[in-house]
Structure formats: structure tokens, C-alpha cells
Design a protein around this nucleic acid. Structure first.
Lengths: 304, 304
DNA sequence: GCAGAGTCATGCCTTTCAGGCATATCTTGG
DNA sequence: CCAAGATATGCCTGAAAGGCATGACTCTGC
């Protein structure tokens, strides 16, 4: 049985007439007649009652007609779905991200994406840096928007920087250093530090090492937290300070003080991470394109 | 696109390997390779990533695989449904009937049928004689189990008698004639009669005429009812008597008295009515077969 | 580093079968 | 009783599915 048989049967059933169906299918009537005969023979059931003034459906034919209509419709829909997926207009896009550091990029990009390609479901996964790398390598994530320490490499994962942020000190409002407009690195280095956990955020620790190495100093890590919000709480509780990028102001508002550092060259990039060889779906590519566009707009805005 | 393409794609996707898939499909590998190429070309999407050690699915391929699995399964099920219908093991059977007169036949036949062919839904329609004839002619009903006056003919409807019942008089318990063991027809003819309505049950009236004609007497119809239960109520209320078959005892129990008639040759048959040329589904034929079987069993039982 | 085994693709030929044309058969309507 | 219109049948052709041999490529194991 082939789809041809079903298409032919459908045409005959709808026309109640071989001759007319043959015309609409642009085949000769005998060819059509034989194909339908073959179909009936193969399934072993008479579907049509032939008469010299057309055909009528048997009870079996009526049932089969319904089934065939459904089958052909589904076949069509299946092909269209796949084509839509190929055009990036259908499917799911799993994106790993860190909420706070991506606040400048992700929300506008998401809005633009949903407007441009409403057929694609975007699934956001709030994950730590380590989980993101694992997710990309295993294929669970299609891409990630995340901070990245330039110079750190993971096999099979590549990073495309979009925004670069200087590193600043974050203090509780009452902290003695808060009186300075800019804080020299040596002063900061002496303070107890609140950091993200080494297990979940190896990058953050790699960055710390890079910052401290030239000076020969050692960081005094007072506490490791497993999320950004815990860090904020710890700082408010006067347990220490932390070093991170200034965009977090957008999240923490006036609860914490941000001060630029002097004597530090390292910076934090935020951008797109993706698997090196697992090729991205068109929807994913489109999303990257939008992220780049948003990043350009934001860069201009900040420069002016 | 033909089902062949889908079957081939499915085999390749499941084997992740053209060569093995070709073996399981019993075609040569190049033939398979080309068919899948044709499929990809037709839908315009790459479904497989070829490599020198097998194939893997693209994202589009994964989606299409799911669709194809479903499609092929449904195609298979459709054919099986139609075959089951042709074998009489699937579908619906609309049966018109009169509840009381068919009490000997229908319940046992229904039970046997549901046991033998559980895939067929039997839909019972409680209808008057006239409605049954209309239903059979229009095709709403596949068949009917109903009383029939032998000798009455309707175009396009044929009747097969299964059981034949004598006609008896039905009286309220206190009725004067109830003292007789058997009632001569002339005595009955003088009584006021309760009948079914002429509009809905032309047969019942045809039967009355046949009974009265030889004697030259005229029936005194006191009341026409539109259902058997109304007749029962009217008799209990002493409005008159009625003439019908003795099986109704099984329904009315001791509420009414049944007395045989003398001097009457007419009888009432109960059996299968069906459209003359609209051929019955196999399920319908099977049901008729069971009715005949039940009728034989009952006849033997009553004879002994 | 190379041979070998495995992969999928390509070229060429054969075979199958869908499709076209002519025509037979049947029923209905005028 | 014939014409019109329906489906089925016989015969032939051509497109395309399939088979075989082979090519191109990549891993694996020696």
C-alpha cells in the first residue's frame, strides 16, 4: 500500500465517480481504476460499489475514507512541521543562562525572538556555569547566555563574547571602603571575600586567581555561596565584599554599593556559549543573531 | 512522497545504518540510499547526517522520525480497522425493536453477541412499527427485531419470522370474561378495545381487520395508545381489553389476565426485518444468525 | 603508516509496474 | 432501440525502483 493508493481512493470517493476523479488527478481513468482495485485487493475488502452510473461507498469504504482523510492530512502536516523546523519557525530552544549577569541582553532578545518566531518554544534554564558547560556538551542545552572568563577553555564548547564588563567591588552601604570613589586592588585584596562556590562556578575562581596572581597576594575567601542571591545576602550581612561586574546594579538596586577598582586589567565577558560541533538549529542561529543585535544596541547606548 | 519512502527512512533511522536497514528491508543498500535521498530532496530538509561509520539524525530527522512512526502505525491500524469491520468484528449495529414482544429473543441474542463480537457496539432503538419501517428504508437502522403481521408487505423491507404467537385476550383481573378458560371470538368482539395508535402501528390495525373480516363484525375501539405500557394502564383502569400475544405475560406478570381465543386463525410473528437491497454488514448477519439460534432453542423449550 | 573492514554514494543496467490508449460491457434515459 | 456515460480489460510504453559493481572516505588494528 502506498500513499498513491490512498490519494486515489480519496479522490474517487469524493467524486463518487472514477472518470471525474481521474480528470482531477490528471491520470487516465483505467489507471485509476486499476490502482483502486489493487488497493481493495491488498486490504482484502471491497471499498466501493461500482455501478454504471458511478460508485458508492460500502460501509467499509466509509470507514476507510475517514481514516484516509486523516492519514493524508497528517502526512501533510508532518512534512510541514519538519519544514517549519528547518526554517527555524517551529520547535524548542533550550537556553541555559545566569539571570543576573545577562539582564542587559536576554530580556530584550527574548522579546524580539518571540515576536519574530512565535512558533518556537524557548525554554530557559537557570543554571550555574558548570551545569551550563555540561548541558551544552550533552546536548541538553542548545545554547547558553552566560558570563565567561576569557582565556578559560572547555573541550567541545565555544564562546562568543558580546558584552565586556570591568570588575568592581561590591560593598554593604556602611562599609568603610565605601567612602572611596575608586578602590585600589590592594585594599580590596585584604578584605574577606564572598564568592560563588568553586564546585558550581569554577570560572569565578579562575577569574579570582587571574586577578590575584600578578600581585602575589592571596584571596581571603570568607564564604562560598551557591547562588548570586546568597552572595548579596552575605554582603548585606557584612560578612565581606565581592568582586563582580557593575551590571548587577540593575538587579540589586541601592541595597549594595558598587565601586570601580584600580590596578586591575581583567574583565568579565557575557556572551553566547554553544557546543563546538553540535550544529545549532536555525531557530538557535536566529536567536544568536538577535542577541548580537541587542548587544550592539546596548553598547551604543552605554557609550553615549 | 510515498509510504515506501517513510518505511525506508524509518528503517534507516532505527538502524542508524543504511547497510543494516537495507538488509532488514531486503533491498540493496544503494536502492535504499537513493530512496532516502529522494525523500530528503522532496521535503527539502536534511534528515540524516551521513558519516563513514553510520548515520545520525538531524534535529529535523528526529522530529520526522516521530511523525513517521505515528503515521505508519496509524496507516496500519486503519487497514486493520477496515478488515475488522469487514469481518464483522468492529463497528456499530443499529437495531430497531419493540421491547415487550421481543423479550424472548432479543436479550439472549444480545448477550451471546456481545460475548462473540465484543468489538461491535450494538445500539438499540425502541421504536414503533412505523418508525422501524422508515428507519430500515432510510438506512438509519441496519435491522430490526419486531412483531410482524404475516401478509403485510412494505416496499424495500423484508421480514423473516422467527417465532409465531397465537392471539389472546388480555383483561383486567376483575373482568367478567376472566372467568372463562378460553374466550370465543364473538364475545371478545363485543368488548371495547384498547389498541396501539393507527399512526404509529399500522400493523396492529391491519391485524385487527384481518381478525374481524371473516365474522363481519366491527371492532369497538375505545382508546388508541402510543405505547404498550399505556395499553396496560388502560386495561388495568377497566377501559377495555386488548388482543395480543401471550409472551407479554413475561412483562406484565400477574397485573393482567391472559385468555386464549377460540375461532381465530390469525397469529402474530416476531422476527427480523431488514432492508431488501441494502446489504447488511457482516456484524448484522452474525446477529441474525444468533437470533435464529436463540429462536430455535426457545421453540424447543416451549414445545417440551 | 598502511592494510582492511566498514561506511555511504555513484554509474550502469535490468525489471517492475504505473499510466496511456483503444475498446468491451453494462445500465439508464430519451 | 440507440446514445450517453459509467467502469473494466488488454496491450503497450516509459519512468523509476532495484540490483550489481565500484568509488570515496574514515576509522581500527597491526
Amino acid at each position: 500500500m502506498e500513499l498513491r493508493h490512498l490519494r486515489y481512493f480519496l479522490a474517487v470517493a469524493e467524486a463518487s465517480n472514477f472518470t471525474k476523479a481521474a480528470r482531477s488527478l490528471r491520470v487516465a481513468q483505467p489507471a485509476l481504476s486499476r490502482q483502486v482495485q489493487d488497493l481493495e485487493e491488498e486490504i482484502g475488502v471491497d471499498l466501493l460499489k461500482r455501478s454504471p452510473r458511478g460508485v458508492t461507498l460500502t460501509a467499509e469504504g466509509k470507514l476507510f475514507l475517514e481514516e484516509v482523510r486523516d492519514l493524508l492530512k497528517r502526512a501533510d502536516e508532518s512534512v510541514n512541521k519538519v519544514r517549519a523546523l528547518a526554517r527555524g519557525e517551529y520547535g524548542e530552544l533550550h537556553i541555559g543562562y545566569s539571570p543576573s549577569p545577562t539582564i542587559e541582553l536576554l530580556p530584550p532578545a527574548l522579546a524580539a525572538f518571540q515576536k519574530a518566531v512565535p512558533g518556537v518554544k524557548v525554554l530557559l534554564h537557570d543554571m550555574s556555569g558548570g551545569e551550563i558547560v555540561d548541558g551544552l556538551r550533552s546536548g541538553t542545552l542548545h545554547l547558553a547566555v552566560t558570563p565567561w572568563v576569557i582565556g578559560e577553555h572547555y573541550p567541545d564548547v565555544e564562546f562568543e563574547p558580546l558584552r565586556s564588563y570591568p570588575i568592581c567591588a561590591v560593598l554593604a552601604p556602611g562599609h568603610p571602603l565605601a567612602r572611596l570613589k575608586a578602590i585600589p586592588f590592594e585594599k580590596v585584596a585584604a578584605e574577606p571575600l564572598i564568592t560563588l562556590s568553586r564546585k558550581d562556578y569554577p570560572d569565578a575562581h579562575a577569574l579570582l586567581e587571574r586577578m590575584f596572581r600578578p600581585s602575589g597576594l592571596k584571596p581571603r575567601i570568607a564564604q562560598e555561596c551557591d547562588s548570586g542571591s546568597s552572595v548579596v545576602t552575605a554582603i548585606e550581612a557584612q560578612r565581606g565584599i565581592t568582586l563582580t561586574m557593575p551590571v548587577l546594579k540593575l538587579v540589586t538596586g541601592k541595597r549594595l554599593q558598587y565601586r570601580p577598582l584600580t590596578g586591575v586589567t581583567e574583565s568579565i565577558s557575557v556572551g553566547i556559549a554553544r557546543a563546538k560541533h553540535g550544529d545549532l538549529t536555525p531557530a538557535g542561529e536566529k536567536f544568536c543573531e538577535l542577541l548580537r543585535k541587542v548587544s550592539k544596541t546596548v553598547s551604543k547606548l552605554r557609550a553615549s
